[in-house]
Simulated scan of single mutants.
Amino acid sequence: MPEALTAKGRATRARIVEGAAEVLRTQGVGATTLDDIRGRTGTSKSQLFHYFPEGKDALLLAVARFEADRVLADQQPHLGRLDSWESWQRWRDVVVERYELQGDQCPLGALFLQVGRTSPGARAIVTGLMRQWQEDLARGIRALRAGGLVAPDLDVDRASAALLAGIQGGVSLMLSTGESTHLRAALDTGIEYLRVSGTPTAPPSCAPGTRRP
């Protein structure tokens, strides 16, 4: 981002990024030109290059960051309130609905294909998104643990990592098949694992005719 932007400049830049995201979602990354974005956002060529002096790739990275932030924002307020089984179920339903509505199009994935998944900017966006998502899930599991709903010795980081990996795998399969079956299964199984971990184990009973030691 250009240094020392005024409040008006930041608002203009944000408007360009949001408008570009709308165009890219509608037309696709490969079919969208800077002229399309200028037309949608009402910006001149000089203005566009003022905020994105490195050109289209810099703008695409800014849109990718916007889309990454949107992934988490679409899960709120539920992702920030995972302190009961009811709140986990509401979050689960929101995640499924989000990706079902998205269908077989993945704006974030398409953007990364355009700018290169291994480019430093793209990698930083993906790493930041996954780190924050896992931290939010871990915070929710800790809230369950504080309420006595999961086992006190549950490995929170491992459980949150497994749940996130299941979501990503389910979404990938959904993009390939058009079916949300695997995503639903990953979420349901991950949440059920948390539930089972908090179920107290009954002490062994004595069979009839045996003596208690």
Rank of each mutant, 00 (worst) to 15 (best):
G116L: 07
S180M: 09
Q134K: 13
Q102Y: 05
L149S: 15
P107L: 12
P107D: 04
G140A: 11
G140C: 09
L137D: 02
S119Q: 15
L187N: 00
L137S: 02
G166M: 11
W133T: 03
V126R: 06
L129M: 04
S119W: 04
A186H: 10
L187F: 01
L144H: 07
L183H: 01
S160M: 06
Q168R: 09
A146P: 03
G148Y: 10
L173I: 12
G116C: 09
P120V: 06
E135D: 15
L129E: 05
Q114M: 00
L108C: 09
G140D: 13
A159K: 01
R117E: 11
M130S: 02
L194Q: 14
D188L: 04
A162W: 10
G140H: 05
L108Y: 12
Q114W: 01
G147V: 08
A124D: 15
A138F: 09
D157L: 09
R142C: 08
V171Q: 10
G109I: 00
L183K: 00
V196I: 15
L163V: 15
L137C: 05
G140F: 11
L101F: 02
G147P: 03
G147M: 08
A185E: 13
V115G: 01
G140V: 08
V171L: 08
A110I: 00
T177G: 05
A110K: 03
A186F: 08
S119A: 14
A186G: 07
R145K: 12
R142N: 07
S119P: 03
G169D: 12
T189F: 07
R123E: 07
G109C: 09
L194T: 15
T118L: 10
R123W: 12
I125A: 00
A162F: 13
M174I: 05
L129D: 06
A110N: 04
G166W: 09
P152I: 14
Y193P: 03
T189W: 05
Q168E: 14
